[in-house]
Simulated assay, not measured.
Amino acid sequence: MGSSDPVRVPVREPVRRVVVGVDGSPTSHAALRWAAGYARETGAVVEVVYAWDTPSSAGWTGPAIDPEFDLEQAHERFAAELQSVFGDERPAGLREVLVEGDPSEVLIRASEGADLVVVGRRGRGGFARAMLGSVSQRVAQHAACPVVVVRPEQTPDAVR
């Protein structure tokens, strides 16, 4: 190979990354199942984000979290949630992300560089009749990539 020969660098397809927010609610379980089905069909990696916000004394209206809630408790809840959704057959390519912070802000930041964000229609907070929860609405409005909002009755077969 002479000095004027071009250097050939193998081109790799970028890893597709799907971010899904979970909070223990049935709609977040549906979103997680949907994201796993989508990933299976497309070869994407699923980044499962569990975010919690420690309540402040003024005006916080999210799910009740003990102010002493810590990373160990978050990890236990997260592991229980994954077990609840997948049992012992967790899909390959599942990445766990635990972050203390406002869930909508955490998901919006995670959307940067992602191919897709998946959220449940409504999570733990809010009004039962609301079309979208506050987190899903904020993520849909501000994410850096497309957003799928999943209803509880949607299944992985709906990916097609």
Rank of each mutant, 00 (worst) to 15 (best):
Met1Gln: 14
Gly2Glu: 08
Ser4Trp: 02
Val7Phe: 15
Arg8Phe: 14
Val9Ala: 08
Pro14Trp: 10
Val18Ser: 05
Val19His: 07
Val20Leu: 06
Ser25Trp: 10
Ser28Pro: 01
His29Ile: 00
His29Val: 03
Ala35Lys: 06
Ala35Tyr: 03
Ala35Cys: 06
Tyr38Cys: 07
Arg40Ile: 00
Thr42His: 04
Val45His: 12
Asp53Cys: 11
Asp53Trp: 03
Thr54Lys: 03
Gly59His: 12
Ala64Ser: 14
Ala64Gly: 13
Glu68Cys: 05
Phe69Gln: 05
Leu71Ile: 03
Leu71Phe: 06
Gln73Tyr: 02
Gln73Ser: 11
Gln73Thr: 10
Glu76Ile: 09
Arg77Ile: 07
Phe78Leu: 11
Phe78Ser: 07
Gln83Val: 03
Val85Glu: 02
Phe86Ala: 03
Phe86Trp: 02
Arg90Asn: 04
Ala92Met: 01
Leu94Pro: 00
Arg95Glu: 12
Arg95Tyr: 03
Ser104Lys: 14
Ile108Cys: 03
Ile108Ser: 00
Arg109His: 06
Ala110Gln: 14
Glu112Thr: 12
Leu116Gln: 04
Val118Glu: 06
Val119His: 09
Val119Cys: 13
Gly123Ala: 00
Arg124Asn: 10
Arg124Ile: 07
Gly125Arg: 13
Gly126Pro: 04
Ala128Pro: 02
Ala128Gln: 08
Ala128Thr: 13
Met131Ile: 15
Leu132Pro: 11
Val135Pro: 02
Gln137Ile: 05
Cys145Pro: 04
Val149Glu: 11
Val150Ile: 11
Arg151His: 15
Pro152Ala: 15
Glu153Gly: 12
Thr155Ala: 04
Val159Met: 08
Arg160Phe: 05
